[in-house]
């Protein structure tokens, strides 16, 4: 066997691929499902917090900043372990899936809040004055005037952050969530072969490379004509 054949046999073994493809595919869909849920709930909560913050109520803003700082400073894996292993002793047992979804949603919400808030601040204050002077209310001004302009600026950083955080679904492996990486490492140890890990890598590329490019596409689309 040449070195190249040995390499293929170890990392791209067709027999192993066929044997474990169903597991990898199942893991792929679990990863997709959790990723979608995290993106939806994380971005929604982040936007909600940013809008709430723009009311500029002292103690609420203080709480929001504490929340954001905490979730920016703590590694998600620490939070996952605390919730997964710590809560059952208090009589509250959450499944690995719920813990993973909850932690990643909160982390994404924290980052998204910061990004949306920066976007809101970047909109010229004259826009708010003009809108309020025509009788639009606070929320109407937010929804129709401020956010459409703010969101355009947030697309790029938000996409990057969302990809980085949804990639953390791989952390589910540590607490037994049957996602892609978990399926792959399990298959790898059963098969005694590294092929499942390559399959997982390829699956991640299939999942995230289009998102990277979609982000760029949306970014150019949202850039409406400016003189």
């Amino acid at each position: 066997m040449t070195r190249f054949e040995a390499f293929l046999d170890t990392f791209f073994n067709v027999a192993v691929m066929q044997r474990y493809l169903p597991d990898i595919v199942a893991g792929f869909f679990v990863t997709c499902g959790i990723a979608v849920l995290v993106v939806v709930s994380g971005l929604a909560l982040g936007l909600l917090l940013a809008v709430l913050r723009s009311y500029r109520i002292g103690w609420i803003n203080f709480l929001i900043i504490i929340f954001v700082d905490l979730l920016r400073a703590l590694p998600p894996l620490v939070l996952i372990l605390i919730l997964y292993f710590g809560l059952p002793n208090l009589g509250l047992t959450l499944s690995g899936y719920v813990v993973l979804w909850l932690v990643l949603s909160l982390v994404l919400a924290a980052f998204a809040e910061e990004i949306f808030w920066a976007g809101i601040l970047s909109v010229n204050s004259g826009q708010r004055l003009a809108a309020r002077s025509t009788g639009l209310g606070f929320l109407q001004t937010m929804v129709y005037v401020i956010l459409p302009q703010a969101v355009r600026l947030t697309i790029a950083p938000l996409t990057n952050r969302t990809i980085a955080i949804t990639k953390n679904t791989a952390l589910g492996m540590v607490i037994g969530v049957g996602e892609l990486l978990n399926q792959a490492t399990t298959a790898q140890s059963f098969a005694g072969n590294a092929t499942p890990l390559m399959m997982a890598t390829i699956a991640y590329l299939i999942l995230f490379v289009p998102v990277v490019y979609a982000g760029r596409w949306i970014e150019t689309r949202y850039a409406w004509r400016r003189a």
């Binding site: 990639k167 990486l181 995230f208």
Partner: peptide, 16 residues
């Protein structure tokens, strides 16, 4: 950018 860091780490430490 597309591969989770944990997947990369495991690929290197368990695959190589």
């Amino acid at each position: 950018r597309a591969v989770p860091p944990l997947a990369l780490l495991i690929l290197i430490s368990a695959g190589l």
